[in-house]
Amino acid sequence: MSKQIIHTERAPSAVGPYSQAVGAPQGKTFYLSGQIGLEPQTGSLIEGSFQDQVRQAFDNMQAVIEACGGDLSHVVKLTLFLTDLSRFGEVNSIMAEVFSEPYPARSTVGVSSLPKGAEFEVEAIVVV
């Protein structure tokens, strides 16, 4: 799948590992439900740090993408949900490890709570 990365100087540049917009001219579109840092074997929130939750949520998302027949390069849009927006930089660092350029488009939303006491959730739109 070829993605068209959109960038204009008439809008602010990305402040992290994401693109202003991404076009996906062809393919089958999948709208993934949000993933939190649950361990697939137990259904329990992973024990450990905030970073462990973020990595597990991205791993869970990647497993769903692979079940759709794709990989991380097929992600065109992410929405991140954080219970503490001061941890935005930590998520950016992990996302830069998980994804390579060209980055998907992304929104980040601060929320008061997430299921099972999670501190991070990610949802995606994927075109395969």
Rank of each mutant, 00 (worst) to 15 (best):
V54T: 08
S2T: 03
F88N: 11
K28M: 06
G117W: 05
P12G: 13
V126H: 09
A24F: 02
S113I: 04
D52W: 03
V75N: 10
F99N: 11
V122W: 01
E101P: 10
S86C: 04
R10G: 08
V122G: 05
S49N: 05
F99K: 09
Y31S: 08
S93T: 15
I46L: 01
P25W: 01
I94D: 06
P17A: 06
G110Y: 06
E66G: 03
T42N: 00
V15D: 04
S112R: 07
A24R: 03
C68G: 11
R106G: 02
K28D: 08
P40Y: 01
S19K: 04
C68S: 12
L85K: 09
S33K: 15
V15N: 01
Q51W: 05
A96E: 14
P12H: 13
P40C: 02
F58C: 14
S112A: 10
G89C: 04
D84K: 06
V122N: 04
L32F: 06
A57E: 05
V109C: 06
S113P: 02
S73K: 13
L45F: 07
S19M: 08
A105L: 05
G23I: 12
A24T: 04
L114K: 02
G34M: 05
F30Y: 15
Q62R: 15
P102N: 10
E123R: 09
F81P: 03
E119R: 06
E90C: 05
G27M: 09
Q56F: 10
E123A: 12
A24N: 03
D71P: 06
R55W: 07
S112V: 06
A21C: 05
P40W: 01
G34I: 00
R10S: 15
V126Y: 08
V75H: 09
Q4H: 07
T29D: 14
P102R: 11
A63G: 08
Q62S: 15
S107I: 00
Q41P: 00
G48T: 00
F88L: 12
G34N: 06
E119Q: 14
G34Q: 10
N92E: 14
E47W: 02
Q26T: 07
A118P: 05
Q51K: 11
I94N: 03
C68D: 13
S73N: 13
A105N: 08
R106L: 12
S107P: 00
Q53W: 10
D71G: 15
L114W: 04
K116T: 11
V109L: 08
A67P: 00
G34S: 13
I94Q: 03
K116S: 12
P40R: 09
V22L: 13
